[in-house]
C-alpha cells in the first residue's frame, strides 16, 4: 500500500458520526495480550462508573467473552449476498461468467449457471445479466453477539470456521456497536493480530490506539510493523508493554518507540494474579483489585478517561 494515503481516505478512517471516544487495542504479533489488556481496561473503565462497550473484532478467534466469563447472547447473523440463477430466464449470454473475477461461475451445459467457487457478494454478475435471471440469495458467514454485564457491554464478531470472509464479520460487528455508540461513554475495540486490512477496518474511527507488545525480538519486530501502519493513518497512539518480565529486549522496544515518536504508556509483568484471572475468566480488576496488575489497569483507565472522555 502507498505510504501516502489521500486525505479523503484518512478523513473517512476517522469519521464516525458520533462523539463517543473509540480506543483501539491492537498489537501485530499474536499472543502479546491484546485481549487481556482490552478486557481489563474495559473492566477498569466500568469500575470507574463509566458505560463502556468492548468490541471483540478478532473474528477468527474471539476470546473476550472467555476472559470475561460471559456467554454469547443476542445473535445476529452476518450474511453475504449470493446469486441464485433462474435457468428459465437465462439467455445463455455468458456475461456473468466473464464478469466473475473469482472464476466462481460454471456453465456445465446450455442455460445452466452454477455457483461453484468462492463468492464474496460483489454482485458483478447481477450487474451484467441482461435477462433478470439472477436474484439475490444469502449465505451466512458469521454471527455478531451482544452481552451486557453491569456497565460493560460486550459485542463479539465470530466467523464460521472454514470460511474466508473475516472482513464482512468485522464490518458487521463494528456497525452494530457504532449504531448504538451514543449509549456509551467509551468504546474499546480488540483487533485480530496482524497489520492487514481487517485490522484497519477494526480500528476505523479510533480516537486513540494502544499498541500492545512484549519485550522480545519478535515483539519489537511486529511493533515496528504496527506503528508503521498507524503512521499511515496518523492515528494517536501509545504503547503498552505486556510480559515485561520476559528476558531481554526492552531497549529494542524503546528504540522502535522512539523511531515512531510514540510514548510508552505503561507496562505489566505476568504475575500469579493476572494469570489466575486470565484462566478463571474474571478481569483482574474485579478478581484481585489490590494486585499490581489491577492497579496498573485502573491507572491506565484513569489516564484515558481524563484524556478522552468528556
Amino acid at each position: 500500500m502507498n505510504s501516502e494515503l489521500r486525505p479523503e481516505i484518512i478523513q473517512a478512517f476517522f469519521k464516525t458520526g458520533f462523539s463517543t471516544p473509540v480506543i483501539g487495542v491492537t498489537g501485530g504479533k499474536g499472543g502479546v495480550g491484546k485481549t487481556t489488556v482490552a478486557v481489563n481496561l474495559a473492566a477498569a473503565v466500568a469500575a470507574r462508573g463509566r458505560k463502556v462497550a468492548l468490541v471483540d473484532a478478532d473474528v477468527d478467534a474471539p476470546n473476550a467473552a472467555i476472559l470475561l466469563g460471559l456467554s454469547l447472547d443476542n445473535p445476529v447473523d452476518v450474511p453475504v449476498t449470493q446469486p441464485v440463477f433462474d435457468h428459465q430466464k437465462c439467455s445463455d449470454c455468458k456475461l456473468c461468467i466473464s464478469a466473475c473475477r473469482l472464476n466462481s461461475l460454471f456453465r456445465p451445459k446450455e442455460k445452466t449457471i452454477l455457483l461453484m467457487g468462492e463468492c464474496n457478494g460483489c454482485e458483478a454478475c447481477f450487474l451484467v445479466c441482461p435477462s433478470d435471471a439472477i436474484s439475490r440469495g444469502r449465505r451466512s458467514v458469521g454471527t455478531t453477539y451482544k452481552n451486557t454485564s453491569g456497565k460493560l457491554t460486550l459485542y463479539t464478531g465470530e466467523l464460521h470456521p472454514g470460511l474466508e470472509e473475516s472482513a464482512l464479520v468485522v464490518t458487521a460487528v463494528k456497525k452494530r456497536v457504532f449504531a448504538e455508540a451514543d449509549q456509551f461513554d467509551c468504546i474499546l475495540i480488540d483487533t485480530s493480530p496482524g497489520t492487514h486490512c481487517n485490522v484497519i477496518d477494526a480500528l476505523k474511527g479510533a480516537t486513540h490506539v494502544l499498541a500492545v507488545t512484549e519485550p522480545t525480538p519478535l515483539g519489537a519486530h511486529d511493533l515496528d510493523l504496527m506503528l508503521s501502519l498507524l503512521d499511515m493513518f496518523k492515528v494517536s497512539r501509545s504503547i503498552f508493554i505486556n510480559r515485561a518480565d520476559l528476558p531481554g529486549r526492552m531497549n529494542e522496544i524503546q528504540d522502535v518507540a522512539a523511531t515512531h515518536e510514540t510514548q510508552i504508556e505503561t507496562g505489566l509483568k505476568l504475575d500469579e494474579d493476572l494469570l489466575a484471572s486470565y484462566v478463571n475468566g474474571v478481569p483482574v480488576v474485579d478478581a484481585y483489585p489490590d494486585s499490581l496488575a489491577a492497579k496498573t489497569f485502573m491507572a491506565l483507565a484513569d489516564n484515558l478517561i481524563m484524556e478522552y472522555l468528556p
Binding site: Q82, V84, F85, L114, L115, M116, G117, E118, C119, G137, R139, S140, E158, H160, P161, G162, L163, E164
Partner: peptide, 27 residues
C-alpha cells in the same frame, strides 16, 4: 460440491446436483 465453506458437522454441505453448491454450515 462447493466445498471450502459452510463447515459444521454434517449439515450444510451441498451434495452434487443442487443448484447452489454452498453449504449453510453452522459452527
Amino acid at each position: 460440491y462447493g466445498s471450502g465453506c459452510g463447515s459444521g458437522k454434517g449439515g450444510g454441505r451441498g451434495s452434487g446436483g443442487r443448484g447452489m453448491g454452498r453449504g449453510q454450515g453452522r459452527r
